[in-house]
Nucleic acid binder design. Structure first.
Lengths: 134, 134
DNA sequence: GACGTTCTACTACAAGTGTAGTAGCGTCCC
DNA sequence: GGGACGCTACTACACTTGTAGTAGAACGTC
């Protein structure tokens, strides 16, 4: 697992662009970001370099330019970001987040449906290999 | 609603110290943070000032020193932080977060219990507002 | 009223972020 | 093989964050 340096706002956007299509050229990434951000080519390049330094993106020279590809998937990044929020704002306790969700946030019917599935799935998983992590 | 400038890691710790006890003197805040962080008095002062600038803390001179108190409660801060994470990492969609939780995170029995309560509560709430619970 | 003790205000400085410019190199085209 | 063009590498610069020091004001004490 690469050093879990957290992704900044702008970096998330770049990663999103990469997750949208496996190896992509710098040009492609810029193109994908154009509508969302309007960043200059060099801005995107800077961000890509920083991401490579951080180990979040792998680069490979390919003839003319380079091809970039994420070093981990979106779920992994999301898990890390969530953990980071948990530590920062919820005393690191998952339960606190759930409590907050239940008391403070408004849920739609679809959300509730999702939660029901979530419970069922969690139950299945935990009974399969009987463990309850913190 | 004060300008929702997001709280940084260190600022969260200071806010936590303030939420732990209504108006508190600078000295008190430092004291509460000592074990957790070991920060110098002036470090805490700097953070408090920044929080005042951001509108997250209100200050009031009181004889010798000042008394500080949070300008909003922890739930509000949590809601904002969550929103920010949502926008950054989950395409701004609450459902994406729930999906992530259901598929990616491991839940304990207590978590599941909490979720069940959450669903029930949401159902109650939404039926009160006259939406059919499917 | 001189002194020590506290606080506050201002300043500092390195790392990280957002955003981009410039120079130079490799490649493609005629 | 010389020019046009695209791409990478390096540099820039302001703002935020983490962490603190110093100088001076205010207050309590004898």
């Amino acid at each position: 697992m690469p050093p879990a340096t957290p992704l900044s706002e702008a970096e998330w956007k770049v990663m999103d662009a990469l997750w949208a299509g496996a190896p992509a050229s710098g040009r492609e990434v810029v193109e994908r970001l154009r509508t969302r951000t309007g960043w200059a080519y060099t801005t995107v390049q800077t961000l890509l370099s920083r991401l490579v330094e951080k180990g979040a993106v792998r680069v490979r020279r390919e003839g003319a330019g380079s091809l970039y590809e994420p070093a981990f998937d979106r779920s992994t990044a999301r898990r890390r970001a969530l953990r980071s929020l948990l530590d920062r704002a919820f005393d690191g306790a998952f339960g606190n987040l759930l409590h907050h969700l239940s008391v403070e946030e408004r849920l739609s019917e679809a959300d509730r449906e999702r939660l029901r599935a979530m419970i069922a799935q969690a139950r299945r998983r935990s009974s399969r290999h009987g463990r309850a992590p913190r």
